[in-house]
């Protein structure tokens, strides 16, 4: 009977001790993970939780790279067995499109001043170009025109020489 008690006690200890130990440890690990995440400004607002050595990270980051960096940072912490990455990547802000015809018209006039062989107009926010232009000048012109952030181009009437 004494022997049985001893065995029972041992089994209990074997089960309870690690559980007890792990509870204390989880909180420490969580603190370490949070410190690691706080070191990276891209990971602002990322929340970590640790249970039985499994770190779960949640929140929203701006890029895929930041999402991966958070996981790597958490994995690098002693006591983290695995990481559940529940981070979401925020959708990028929509492009700033120049819908103001007057700004477009002015910018277009500036860009085309030295390209008299090209005629232009603006239709529904799109830049419409017609005429002829040599390739080298066209590359430079397109680079300037893209800065106007129009709603695209209609170039069906433009010939590149």
């Amino acid at each position: 009977m004494k022997k049985l008690l001893a065995i029972t006690a041992f089994i209990c200890l074997a089960f309870y001790l690690p559980a007890c130990k792990s509870k204390v440890k989880d909180a420490d690990v969580k603190a370490s993970v949070e410190t690691a995440l706080a070191a990276n400004p891209d990971l602002n607002g990322v929340v970590a939780d640790v249970k039985d050595g499994v770190a779960t990270i949640t929140g929203e980051v701006r890029t895929d790279a930041a999402r991966a960096a958070a996981e790597t940072a958490a994995k690098g912490i002693k006591g983290v067995k695995s990481v559940v990455n529940n981070l979401t990547v925020a959708a990028p802000p929509p492009p700033v499109v120049n819908a103001d015809d007057e700004t477009l018209t002015r910018g277009l006039a500036d860009a085309l001043k030295d390209n008299p062989t090209v005629k232009s107009s603006i239709v529904d926010g799109k830049i419409v170009l017609t005429g002829e232009i040599v390739k080298a000048k066209w590359v430079a012109l397109k680079q300037m025109l893209d800065k106007l952030k129009s709603k695209g181009y209609d170039l069906t009437g433009l010939k590149i020489k």
Binding site: W138, V139, D146, Y153, L155, I160
Partner: peptide
């Protein structure tokens, strides 16, 4: 980048990219 763009859309004539 502009060379790759030119290769994918010769002379940029599709007019479906605004690259800044």
């Amino acid at each position: 980048l502009w060379n790759v763009y030119d290769k994918l859309d010769p002379n940029f004539l599709s007019g479906d990219v605004v690259m800044n």
